[in-house]
Amino acid sequence: MTRPTVDLRPTTQPPFPRPRPLATFFTRPQVIALAAVLFVNWLLFPGFFSVTWQDGRFFGSLIDVLNRGAPVAILAIGMTMVIATKGVDLSVGAVMAISGATAATLVTSGIPAPIAVAAALGTGLLCGLWNGILVTLLEIQPIIATLVLMVAGRGLAQLITEGYIVTFSDPLLIFIGTGSFLGFPMPVIIAATLMIAATLSVRRTALGLLIEAVGVNRSAARFAGLKAGALLLIVYSFAGFCAAVSGLIVAGDIRGADANNAGLWLELDAILAVVIGGTSLMGGRFSIPMAVLGAMIIQAMNTGILISGFSPQFNLVVKSAVIIVILVLQSPLSARLFRRLPGAPK
């Protein structure tokens, strides 16, 4: 009913955040935050940055951060895309447990390890597809749709393992969790490979743009002829796949599938990593490498707490305080404050 008579001409608009030249990479709040956390770790433990070569692999706290951060980083890769579509996947922790349980149960009953791994990854894909179907075809809100599998999935994993921690000594599974390649732990190699592959396949194809479009405005996406349903199915399936990979790593790491504890609450860490990485829960713009960076910030913090010698009662307090600082730093409010500072980059 209103017809504005004044046409607001776009004159001085804030610079659009993407794409940025590499030089600005180091001024991003995430990178600064990671540097700050690592610096604090170094203060707490002077040997933090020392990396040695031992038994054919790199060895040191920094490597531990990468290695321990890998499962959440892998979850975050899938989660980033889900969140970019304005969704969320709460089931990834449970899917990790299912994947580990599947692989462990199969190898202990004599199935060859490659088949067991393929089955675990397939199970993850199916779990993701299930979520996708609930979200697209049945139009259930993502948080509810994936909550179903979050609760039921862990039960499913316990059914598969019959409540035991299924231990195994299969060299392939153990290699996935604890092996090394080019001196780096396998989880790091896997996470890096997945990150690069996922980034390339969304940025070198149209998928990234189309996913962002669906997240920004699903209705407009439909009107523009996008196959939003198919995109969502792919995105949720991929998140399930990532969770399965992560589940294999966690199982391989402890040489056993612990249905009760594998991936427990990791979905929340993954969501946090994505948010720290700057992807809004409102969907739209996303960055996979930044989410991985977010996972590394979280892990650097965990490792820092471990080596700090603080009493464990402080763990959560310290962690949440740091996270609040990071989130405030990247909020639009602080961005405006920074812009007002004299000499700040315009």
Binding site: F45, G47, G60, S61, D64, R68, I165, V250, D253, I254, G256, D258, N261, A262, L264, N302, T303, L306, I307, G309
Partner: peptide
């Protein structure tokens, strides 16, 4: 009380 956290924490202790 979990294996994976036990392993992770021990790793940190060893480094420190």
């Amino acid at each position: 009380f979990t294996r994976s956290k036990g392993k992770e924490v021990m790793e940190g202790f060893l480094k420190a």
